[in-house]
């Protein structure tokens, strides 16, 4: 049904992604399609890595670990933004197209008051993307 699946992830909250990755792995295995783990970060040093190269390597390593764990084909796609907080949605929409993904599975939080001011990234991706988006709560 689908050709490629993309999972946007936040590596600093990797422990909270289990549910969405399980859903994605189930769908990927059913259709025998590859999975792309997309992560947005800044080129400035952060909690996860000193340099873009380190971040890229770390994402690849994470993707390989998940591929082995769930028995899927997976790769990492690191996106470097000047301002990740503000550019997250735009960066992910670009990544969806660059990777030719036609299904996005994304972890998101239960809506609260702040979503009226700042909708969740998942909500905005679902609103603006032209591919199927599966939000996992």
């Amino acid at each position: 049904m689908f050709k490629k699946l993309l999972i946007p992830i936040d590596l600093s909250h990797a422990d909270k992604l289990e549910k969405s990755i399980s859903v994605a792995a189930y769908l990927a295995k059913r259709d025998s399609i590859p999975v792309v783990f997309a992560a947005v970060t800044s080129a400035a040093p952060g909690a996860l890595a000193h340099t873009p190269e380190e971040f890229r390597k770390k994402l690849e390593s994470y993707s390989a670990g998940q591929a082995e764990k769930h028995g899927i084909t997976a790769s990492g796609h690191a996106i470097f933004s000047h301002d990740p907080t503000a550019d997250m949605e735009h960066a992910l929409l670009t990544a969806i197209h660059e990777n030719g993904a036609d299904l996005v599975v994304m972890q998101t939080h239960i809506p609260n008051l702040s979503d009226h001011v700042w909708p969740s990234n998942g909500g905005r991706i679902a609103t603006h993307s032209d591919v199927s988006v599966f939000l996992v709560r």
């Binding site: 996860l48 340099t51 380190e54």
Partner: peptide, 25 residues
């Protein structure tokens, strides 16, 4: 340890300072 969000060993053509401090700790 690549499975944790900690900073891995420095690499690349830049003189990265080796400190125990993790940004945001």
């Amino acid at each position: 340890n690549d499975s944790s969000p900690g900073i891995p060993d420095p690499e690349g053509a830049a003189g990265i300072i080796d400190t125990d401090y993790e940004i945001g700790q």
